[in-house]
């Protein structure tokens, strides 16, 4: 018995270490290579940099419109996020509190249809439609993010709000509140945890998304977001890979910082969101 247990434990520890090396290894290579000049990187790929070389960063910031792309990513993510936070809970509230009404029930299942649809089917017609509307730009992308975030958002929020007892709202109505003031004064505070979950899921999606920016913003480099820039950077700098790694590293920095502080909330938020939908 004891022998069997120790063998399993040892094996488990070895697999565990292997997993950690496999997970962090690429990150390690990326970071050390970002601090090496090209000849050194070519000579010793796995070794720590011999000196703290920042030439790659200097070049990335000066020769490319890196800050421009970072600003695009930041602007698109935060604006979409802000609209979503106002917009998804309100429609979910209307649906959740009128579920016996045919219109709202229809709207709920109508939006949930999106859970069954792979993106590939709207990919091609969407580009035609956005071209016609002259929306192959950042504004168009924000509009799409807001529209598409409805699917998961409404699904998560309607269930959450319906589980909240109505007593408080009824008391508020008696005190003379209407739906709007009840929402802003009471409901918003009760659904804060779900708002946090939605914010985490969506901001990661907006910041990391590649597909929609590729379809909408690839024409002009002024519009590129960071993932799009990284992709296009590959063809431009394939020989100078310390530069590429520097670019990947820089686009990761904000995420790493946020993750260090909020990992607990991020992990529970994302896994709860995934399990429910």
């Amino acid at each position: 018995m004891i022998k069997e247990k120790t063998i399993w434990k040892l094996l488990g520890k070895m697999v565990m270490i292997f997993g950690i090396v496999l997970t962090l290894g690429p990150m390690y290579i990326m970071i050390i290579t970002a601090f090496k000049p090209l000849p050194e990187a070519a000579k010793s790929f796995f070794a720590l940099p011999s000196a703290f070389y920042i030439g790659n960063f200097v070049e990335l910031f000066s020769r490319n419109k890196f800050w421009n792309y970072a600003a695009n990513s930041l602007m698109i993510s935060t604006i979409s996020m802000t609209i979503v936070v106002f917009f998804v809970p309100t429609v979910s509230y209307a649906i959740a509190r009128n579920f016996n009404n045919r219109y709202y029930r229809f709207l709920y299942y109508y939006i949930l249809l999106g859970l069954f649809v792979p993106f590939q089917i709207i990919m091609l017609p969407l580009v035609k439609q956005m071209t016609k509307l002259n929306l192959l730009n950042r504004q168009g992308l924000i509009l799409l993010y807001v529209s598409f975030s409805l699917i998961r958002g409404v699904f998560l929020f309607v269930g959450y709000i319906r589980a909240i007892p109505r007593d408080i709202e009824e008391a508020a109505y008696i005190d003379g509140c209407n739906v709007f003031s009840t929402y802003t004064r009471i409901i918003v505070h009760l659904i804060k945890p779900m708002i946090a979950t939605l914010m985490i899921i969506d901001i990661l999606w907006f910041w990391n998304d590649f597909m929609l920016p590729l379809l909408l913003l690839n024409k002009s480099s002024d519009y590129w977001t960071l993932p799009l820039f990284q992709y296009n950077f590959k063809t431009q700098y394939s020989f100078n890979y310390p530069m590429s790694f520097t670019a990947y590293f820089m686009s990761m920095v904000p995420i790493v910082i946020i993750y260090c502080f909020l990992q607990k909330y991020i992990i529970t938020g994302i896994s709860a969101g995934a399990v429910k939908s």
């Binding site: 209307a94 109508y110 249809l113 999106g114 709207i122 035609k128 509009l143 598409f148 699917i151």
Partner: peptide, 26 residues
């Protein structure tokens, strides 16, 4: 009316950018 106004932007955006594209695709 407030409930309806809460739901209207969602209905329009979702129909216009999502459902319309699915139908066009088919």
């Amino acid at each position: 009316l407030i409930y309806f106004m809460f739901s209207l932007p969602a209905l329009l955006l979702y129909s216009f950018f999502y459902i319309y594209s699915v139908i066009c695709g088919i």
